[in-house]
Simulated scan of single mutants.
Amino acid sequence: MVDSAELLAQFKPDSSGMPDVVDHVAVARLYGEPLFAMPRDLYIPPDALEVFLEAFEGPLDLLLYLIRKQNFNILDIPMAGMTRQYLVYVEEIRGRNLELAGEYLLMAAMLIEIKSRMLLPPKKMAEGQEAEDPRAELVRRLLEYERMKLAAARLNAMPQFGRDFLQAQVFIEQSLQPRFPDVSVVDLQEAWGAILKRAKLVQHHKITREELSVREHMSLVLKKLQGRRFVEFEDLFDPASGAPVLVVTFIAMLELAKETLIEITQAEVFAPIYVRLAYSLN
């Protein structure tokens, strides 16, 4: 490494205040002093520049790369060869980034376990059932990861706003015509809703008094019974006339029964009720 004092001495300005270089323009400053050319023996630490030829997003990505590179059948993975290649890569990244190597070491332990299980005799299964392949779970995860990776690649290949195209915008200055703010349908709906709310707050309700005469309705009931032997109780009421009229008509019937001008009869329980004139029996 070049000492800073020697580097400054090499580019020390002359008596005129500027070094004997073209244009007298500094390309950099070191501790406040100008540098007018890059030093030839500049020291660069080895870890300052690293080139990654292959970038993997995780252990599954690395396994899939090794399988496709060696043209292995993903449904019949040769565990010995793939585990050997995988461990070579893990040893490489352990020396550079131990924290990053953690998840890769976990997958390496899983590969070694699968390889060990394949060396053992298979477990006895029921008659007609095949022995479970120790690689089945790993194959399922690899196939699922490959589907997701291909789907992500297809999505990434689609044109994206800001990366592949930009939105065209044109601004035209119209100084002679006033520019009014745009009004959307939602703005009109909110304005109309506010008007309806105000209208509900100022509603007027007028109450009128309807004068009904019990004597008048007593006469009406007697007219309906005149010339008829029996009249069913419900036929003496008109539901369309409103609740007040029905109440007054019922009171009028009670008054007529009290004065023994009408008779209200019923043959049995829950039978129809009939009304007739009391003096029609004479």
Rank of each mutant, 00 (worst) to 15 (best):
L212R: 12
S213I: 01
S213W: 01
S213F: 01
S213Q: 03
S213E: 02
S213Y: 01
S213T: 03
S213V: 01
S213K: 05
S213H: 03
V214Q: 04
V214C: 00
R215F: 02
R215H: 06
R215A: 13
E216R: 10
E216C: 04
E216V: 09
E216N: 08
E216H: 12
H217F: 02
H217A: 00
H217L: 04
H217G: 00
M218A: 04
M218C: 03
M218L: 00
S219V: 09
S219G: 02
S219P: 00
S219T: 08
S219D: 01
L220I: 03
L220N: 07
V221G: 12
V221Q: 14
V221T: 15
V221D: 11
L222N: 13
L222K: 14
L222P: 13
K223G: 10
K223W: 09
K224G: 07
K224H: 10
K224Y: 06
L225Y: 09
L225M: 12
L225E: 09
L225T: 09
Q226E: 12
Q226I: 01
R228I: 01
R228Y: 03
R228P: 00
R228C: 01
R229E: 00
F230I: 03
F230G: 02
V231Y: 02
V231R: 02
V231S: 03
E232Y: 05
E232N: 07
E232R: 07
E232F: 05
E232W: 02
E232K: 05
E232V: 05
F233A: 04
F233E: 04
E234G: 06
D235F: 02
L236Y: 02
L236P: 01
L236Q: 03
F237Q: 06
F237K: 05
D238S: 13
D238H: 11
D238W: 08
D238E: 14
P239K: 08
P239I: 04
A240T: 11
A240K: 12
A240S: 13
A240G: 09
A240V: 06
S241W: 00
G242W: 09
G242N: 11
G242Q: 12
A243H: 09
A243I: 12
A243N: 10
P244A: 14
P244L: 13
P244K: 14
P244D: 14
P244V: 13
V245C: 04
V245G: 04
V245Q: 09
V245S: 07
V245F: 06
L246K: 15
V247Y: 01
V247S: 10
V247C: 03
V248L: 07
V248W: 06
T249K: 15
T249Y: 05
T249I: 12
F250I: 14
F250R: 15
F250Y: 15
I251D: 06
I251A: 08
A252H: 05
A252T: 02
A252L: 04
A252R: 07
A252G: 05
M253A: 10
M253I: 13
M253W: 05
M253F: 02
M253N: 08
L254T: 14
L254E: 15
L254M: 15
E255V: 11
E255L: 10
E255I: 04
L256D: 07
L256C: 09
L256P: 05
L256W: 04
L256K: 07
L256M: 08
A257P: 03
A257C: 09
A257R: 15
K258W: 10
K258C: 07
K258Y: 13
K258F: 11
E259C: 00
E259L: 10
E259I: 01
E259K: 10
E259R: 12
T260G: 01
T260S: 07
